[in-house]
Design a protein around this nucleic acid. Structure first.
Lengths: 198, 198
DNA sequence: CCTGAATGTTGACCTATGTCAACGTTTTAA
DNA sequence: TTAAAACGTTGACATAGGTCAACATTCAGG
């Protein structure tokens, strides 16, 4: 793609993402981009809370967002980590407008582009290119969830660590042991021991 | 909805499913239905195999389909069970046309309506109602996968059994212990013991 | 309606991993 | 810069649940 003239630097990664797969003329691209507003968030900031209804979808310019929940016993389970160049939100709540039952948290100081649910679905309904992008977000989300289900079941701790290294090479470098353990479904001690046996 | 005149009985459940949420005029409904062909399959029949590229989406009139994989150690993991009135296929392969890395199997004698990938995506691209239906299939698939991830991690065998009873009341009545265990990520012995402690 | 194969149940035993605690190191916020 | 808190690592110990085997039961298919 050609870099687009007179586009604020902050919109560049999203513009690149949008035109990566589908042709979008510059006018339409501008009208999509104008729905997104820059937001800066600090480390550990919670963007969406358990009981909250999710009204916003985020594109990550820099930083990292985590989706996790906490069960009755106080155990954290992390479902997904999203890095630069990816979309993230509490998708079931965003879709159905029911309480999220999970948290969306920045685990690093992050720069995000936020779009409201209203604008998002307006784009989906009026712009076929954006409709394709939403479909792609859903497809990727689904495929990732499936990989995770198959990748974790019937594997011991060491195999899970090898699996995550193979499928997401930067994951363990970017995410704390504690959070990685809550993603892999093992205790931090076990993760620590497994890494020493690699 | 009104039952549609002169519709073969075999198309009735799919017609009901299609008009349930979106208005579809009769002509368009007919053109959608005409893409589906009835298929009868026997118990244990494999519809899509591990290395195969998936070319078909199925709607279930009666019976039950299972999605599962087998790892190097020969351990089966079941990801999903689909019953009457639901769509099922090896979705990642259906989307990307790469080998499925999983099996789609009928676990009961089943009556299905099959649509080819070509016809399916032609409907998605030409019929906005069907595009919405595909979006809904993806959304439901994603939400189910997420529920499963959160529902299983950090829970012991008994809690998993309680969870599956609460979220899918008919599941244990319909699916063998062995397959249910491979879905819950526990051994058949443990499932058997957990049920006796309910 | 029979029969053999597959499945479910239960007991004995073993191992991976969780828990808890101690300790050293890193991070962070004032 | 520093003090306090959070985190990572490691050891000792406990236990849920896996494996294996024996037996009972169910069920599919002829």
């Amino acid at each position: 793609m050609q870099p687009i003239n007179s586009l604020p630097a902050i919109y560049q990664p999203l513009a690149t993402y949008l035109v990566r797969k589908y042709e979008i003329d510059e006018e339409r691209l501008q009208s999509i981009l104008s729905c997104f507003k820059a937001v800066k968030v600090s480390r550990n900031e919670i963007l969406i809370s358990y009981d909250e209804v999710c009204k916003t979808h985020y594109f990550i310019n820099s930083g990292c967002l985590r989706l996790f929940t906490v069960n009755n016993a106080g155990i954290e389970t992390s479902r997904y980590f999203a890095f630069e160049g990816m979309f993230a939100t509490a998708l079931p709540s965003f879709i159905d407008q029911k309480p999220a039952l999970e948290y969306l948290q920045a685990i690093e100081k992050s720069e995000l582009l936020a779009i409201s649910r209203k604008d998002f679905f307006q784009l989906v309904d009026t712009t076929s290119e954006f409709s394709n992008i939403y479909r792609e977000i859903l497809e990727i989300g689904f495929v990732n969830a499936q990989k995770r289900i198959y990748g974790f079941q019937g594997f011991d701790a060491l195999e899970k660590v090898r699996w995550v290294i193979a499928s997401q090479p930067n994951f363990l470098l970017r995410v704390s042991n504690k959070m990685a353990a809550s993603y892999l479904g093992i205790s931090p001690s076990t993760l620590s021991r497994a890494k020493s046996r690699l």
